[in-house]
Design a protein around this nucleic acid. Structure first.
Lengths: 230, 230
DNA sequence: CGGTCCGTTGAGAAGTCTCAATACAAGTGG
DNA sequence: CCACTTGTATTGAGACTTCTCAACGGACCG
């Protein structure tokens, strides 16, 4: 009996490239692990010993400077892939933001398995190419946008990933709970916590969004938010 | 007679995954093209019609905002791969910075060829994973480093890619010519041309680097430059 | 009730940008 | 050979954005 049989991400993750038989071979080299918020799965600079699929939860990928400044370089959701196959060291920290469940493989086991299953590598390649596109778009945000544009862009991306709106997907309002603290939003956007707070308050005062509680966001005027995003 | 037989990047580019026979099949669907500085190969938002290998030269990948701000999101050198396989639209501009030569494929032809040659996809996957790591490191630079640290980090990376030093690779001085104007350095680092100029002048006055001509850089004190890089 | 965590708000400092002037190098035509 | 133009880089002064430091507020918990 394989964990994979009942896995909720069976058809979304890279596993969807595999037949039932192949999947049971993969299952044999993997195991599940639960993580609590704040718990880390791997650290920047460490040997790359693990790779994993996210089954449930939200995790951050981050790097930092020696003097403690942090930058979040990626956020992963269920069915996303984590870790650095075919590489000696992992180049970022991976930390759970919510209660999370992941499906872990030894990196060397996974490398060997992937090398024998081109369809799996093909899925992983497509995923990696998409992630590279997404990351490059983030470079524009960090390099050339001001605080207001950063916040607006960020909220729109969150809405797309997490949002629940009305009947029409373009219809306001769209509401969701951020899986991030203000500090973490700052670490994503390259801003301080105070600047994040001020810009969100400003958008609220302008009637573009509402902030009913600490983590909750409601987008009242999507068009206006897009105008603010630059 | 195939172009590939005499290709200088035959053993560095993803082509190195292929046998001689496979390579001649790839050669059949590719063609060479020369580009002048400033000439573009593809544009952000266009249909993804082409992919290519860089044979010679340096090219930039860039995106911009509607109001004309630009961010360089990648720089490619000989043997690097360009374009977005398995995707409908290209997400950045690709523009030659120097006289360049590329080996072009129709994206759909390449997709089909790659899907039948797992070793090629494997090479491309490894390359894409490395590029993603590099891009994520750039997020830290753009999000959390100040102008001085950005310039120092940038010069060190350029030295690594382009540098010619003394007998010992760690020995100063290391000298190279930047393939970028000051404006382009600004577009890479998310700074204005004036800030780039001021910070470089500052490092020169401190004796860390020398700037014998517009494009030339000499790293006089590598350790000090690393200290400035944060 | 007091403590802790997190977010908000305020005031001043610092860094970067904007705008303007100047400098320098290379090329052109007289 | 010398003005003149053009493109690029440097330098300066002031404006603006964001950061830093500090105080305050609200929610949750013992």
């Amino acid at each position: 009996m394989s964990y994979c049989d009942t896995c909720v991400i069976r058809n979304q993750a890279i596993c969807s490239a595999l037949t039932t038989e192949e999947l049971s071979a993969l299952n044999a080299i993997g195991r599940r692990r639960d993580l609590e918020p704040g718990e880390s799965l791997m650290w920047e600079g460490d040997d790359s010993l693990l790779v994993a699929n996210v089954i449930d939860g939200v995790l951050k990928l981050s790097t930092g400077t020696e003097d403690g400044r942090e930058q979040i370089v990626g956020v992963v959701y269920p069915s996303d892939f984590i870790g650095r196959p075919f590489g000696a060291t992992s180049s970022q920290n991976v930390t759970a933001l919510t209660n999370s469940r992941v499906c872990i493989f030894s990196r060397t086991d996974f490398d060997a398995f992937a090398s024998e299953h081109p369809a799996l590598e093909h899925k992983l390649l497509k995923r990696t190419l998409s992630e590279l596109d997404r990351t490059r778009r983030w470079l524009l945000l960090l390099g050339r946008k001001n605080a207001e544009e950063k916040i607006a862009t960020f909220l729109l991306e969150m809405a797309e990933r997490l949002g629940a709106g009305g009947s029409d997907e373009w219809e306001s309002p769209i509401s969701f709970d951020l899986p991030f603290s203000r500090q973490q939003v700052g670490d994503i956007l390259g801003l301080t916590i105070e600047t994040v707070s001020r810009q969100m308050t400003k958008l609220k005062k302008e009637g573009v969004i509402d902030l009913p509680s600490r983590r909750a966001v409601v987008i009242l005027d999507r068009q206006s938010l897009e105008d603010h995003a630059g």
